[in-house]
């Protein structure tokens, strides 16, 4: 699913869609809330620091279990939700600093990307000054 983020209403849309999808896939209510909160922050980052425009991709993904060789559709692998947030904004010049709590380059929220990382299982950020930022996070269903 692709959600365009262009204005602050879109933050609510992204959050509602992500929560719905997480619920459908089978995440419990706490994980649904973690995912919705994380996407809410990522979408707001696009609006406030990412040049005001970007996209968020939400996908259901699977990964093979360490123990079993084959991945099958019915679920010997693990199911997860992947969220990718991209913008062509000014980029982050100091990613380590952006990860710290209380740091906010836009002088706004005071909650950094580190908080998003804590809510999710996987976290990657790519950014280049003048080109934009891409954040990829994944949450796996617990078994």
């Amino acid at each position: 699913m692709i959600i365009k983020i262009r204005e602050e209403y879109d933050i609510v849309v992204a959050r509602v869609e992500a929560k719905d999808m997480a619920k459908q896939i089978g995440f419990d209510i706490v994980d649904q809330t973690r995912i919705a909160t994380a996407i809410s922050e990522l979408a707001r980052n696009i609006i406030e620091h990412g040049g005001g425009e970007g996209v968020i991709l939400i996908n259901q993904i699977k990964k093979r279990d360490e123990e079993c060789d084959e991945i099958d559709d019915e679920g010997s692998g693990r199911t997860g939700l992947e969220i990718v947030a991209m913008d062509r904004g000014p980029g982050i010049d100091d990613i380590e600093k952006a990860m710290e709590d209380g740091y906010s380059s836009g002088g706004g929220l005071g909650i950094g990307l580190g908080a998003v990382k804590r809510l999710m299982d996987e976290f990657e950020v790519w950014s280049k000054v003048g080109e934009g930022t891409r954040v990829r996070v994944v949450k796996w269903i617990r078994r």
Partner: peptide
């Protein structure tokens, strides 16, 4: 709600 409390604490706000 419980899930909100859990998320808030983990989130650090």
């Amino acid at each position: 709600r419980p899930e909100i409390s859990i998320t808030l604490v983990e989130f650090g706000v």
